[in-house]
Simulated scan of single mutants.
Amino acid sequence: MRVVAKFGGTSLGSGDRIERAADSIAKAVEQGHEIAVVASAMGDTTDDLLSEITFNADESDQAEIVSMGERTSVRMLKAALASRGVNAMFIEPGHELWPVITDERGEVIVEETKKWASKLADKMDNVVPVITGFLAQTKDGNMTTLGRGGSDTTAVMLGKYMNADEVVIVTDVEGVMTGDPTVVEGARNVGEITVDELRNLSFRGAEVVAPSALAYKDDRMDVRVTHYQHGDLLTGGTRIEGEFRSLVDMREDPLACLTIAGRAIRNTPGILQRVSTALGDHDINVDAVASGMDSITFYIDESLAAEAEDVLHSTIVDLDQLSSVTVDKDVAVIRITGGELPNRPGILQDVIAPIADARINIHDLITSATSIAIFIDWDDREETLEIVQSQF
């Protein structure tokens, strides 16, 4: 099996941890697996170096300075592997086999990176390449970086382009947890999670795998997150499933839009729960929810509108904080999902502007890290769909 293993700063934060990392790599090599290693800077080295740049340095000089963290890590890890009888070589920008090629802005040049990653992969039958994460270079040899979380990006990208069977992210958590174990009592490891689920969590504060890295995940290649104390690269942790697919989809049946108004909504805990529970108790599925300062809007199947209005009205009568419910029918929804959304600046403008130019009114716009839902009049759905599809 061919594996790309990325060791984060915490997992290389001391001599003992480097020893532990080398042990796990040597064990996998002894079992007959082809291993490539991506190494982050030890501990907080990168942040420490950045904090010491108190002068006005250009981007190229900054990249050279912060690269010293990763350059040190690969040398330490290569030496630790050599002491265990493992044939290893460290690879950094400037090396004849350096694989990650970008333009001057740090955008990956895919064809060049694929070509050099393939050449590097051909060497893995008799050597363990130990590669600096986060760093890159232009075709002219100038130093660039892949941005925050760049070591994760290096690992998953190289895993894809080197035809690895699996990428293992070795970090300081035992995979994805049900909650922050430092805050939530009884948090446990999640054995499997989809790439869409994790991408949403990552953009909302979960520091497990950098969102930029997940864009390179495909169905063919497994990605797994495991704790550096586990000691075995090939087992344990959380497996990330699936891949991002850009998709524009239009719901086949019309929706009804039910809006509850109440001046005290924003200051009354449990209001959303009360009205949502009332709908759930009557087996009324909610397609989407939007909330404002003084209103809550539910989108449900239009065939259930009358029943839902009656249920919500009964709830309103029981709650002094709510004043009224209204119903608007013949609403269509078009959803856009895809891994490129968070990395495409101006994406909302790209979607909304042509719809506005066509004089189509948008009822609502609901977004998440990897999706956009556009609500419009039912009669405008086909034209809106054509406009949105033209952008993707």
Rank of each mutant, 00 (worst) to 15 (best):
I25C: 06
L12W: 01
M76R: 14
C257H: 07
N285P: 02
G69C: 08
V311H: 00
V286E: 08
D44R: 01
A210L: 12
V351H: 02
D318E: 14
G32Y: 02
D47S: 06
R245G: 09
L348R: 02
R71H: 13
V208H: 09
T54K: 15
D301E: 13
E112L: 12
S295N: 15
Y161A: 03
I376G: 00
F244G: 11
K123N: 03
F134S: 03
E19H: 01
E386P: 07
A213N: 05
M250A: 12
L120C: 03
D380T: 13
I300W: 05
V195G: 09
F90N: 14
E30P: 01
A36N: 06
L198S: 02
G280D: 11
G186M: 03
W378G: 05
R75Y: 02
G94P: 04
V327C: 08
E107T: 09
I101E: 06
A358L: 07
P211I: 08
T45V: 11
F134T: 00
E64M: 10
I109N: 03
D165P: 03
D61S: 07
V130F: 13
F298H: 07
A356S: 14
L272Q: 10
R274F: 03
T102K: 01
H282P: 09
A136S: 14
A41E: 04
V130L: 13
T370V: 11
R17V: 05
S371F: 08
K119H: 09
